[in-house]
């Protein structure tokens, strides 16, 4: 199982780097999906089966489809090719990369400097998660539901355009 963890981890890191650096949006997106799948494997290995499934269903399956959808609607796949030269110059990425490197260094320091007693793997059942969600975190669930509702309404409102009928027969509809 640990082998799976390391393989998935390497895949996740590599595909994420690819996702960040691809100029073609759809390619980047595909790499990102791979990254999420790899992350799902990592979660599965860690015993969080429910979360792994959700990662695949929601992140890789639903949210990313939305991205693809929008990219397709805007048809911007090839458009960024022109900008490739411009943004891949070191001047563009060296600063952010340095910043991220510092952040990573600090986080690594924080992680490695804490005494973390290793524990044996125990699978957290979906049932346990569900019970925890609907007892201890009930309020959180309600708030999340309200937030989703707000998201739906917001997206609907933003996307809504009054339909204009071009044909006189359809004016009444």
């Amino acid at each position: 199982m640990l082998i799976a963890f390391y393989i998935a981890g390497v895949i996740a890191v590599v595909s994420t780097i690819m996702a960040v650096t691809r100029s073609n949006a759809v390619h980047a997106l595909l790499y990102l999906i791979v990254s999420f799948l790899a992350a799902a494997v990592v979660l599965f290995v860690l015993g969080a089966h429910f979360a792994a499934a959700l990662e695949v269903i929601v992140y890789a399956g639903a949210i990313m489809v939305l991205f693809v959808f929008v990219i397709m609607m805007l048809n911007i796949g090839g458009e960024t090719e022109k900008a490739k030269e411009r943004w891949l110059v070191p001047k563009r990425w060296i600063g952010p990369a340095l910043m991220a490197a510092i952040l990573f260094a600090i986080l690594s320091y924080a992680i490695l400097n804490q005494p973390v007693a290793t524990a044996s793997l125990s699978i957290v059942e979906p049932k346990t998660v569900g019970i925890s969600l609907y007892t201890q975190y009930l309020l959180g669930v309600e708030i999340a539901a309200v937030m989703l509702m707000a998201g739906i309404i917001g997206a609907f409102h933003l996307g809504y355009t009054k339909r204009k009928s071009k044909h006189r027969f359809l004016k009444g509809e």
Partner: peptide, 29 residues
């Protein structure tokens, strides 16, 4: 009975976070 690679996985998460940050900072799209 396997051990959870806590530190390695946390480092993985941190690394992904850092890469994401780089992505936010360098992408224009």
């Amino acid at each position: 009975m396997e051990q959870i690679p806590v530190e390695q996985s946390l480092l993985l998460a941190a690394l992904l976070f850092g890469i994401g940050l780089v992505g936010v900072l360098i992408r224009k799209n």
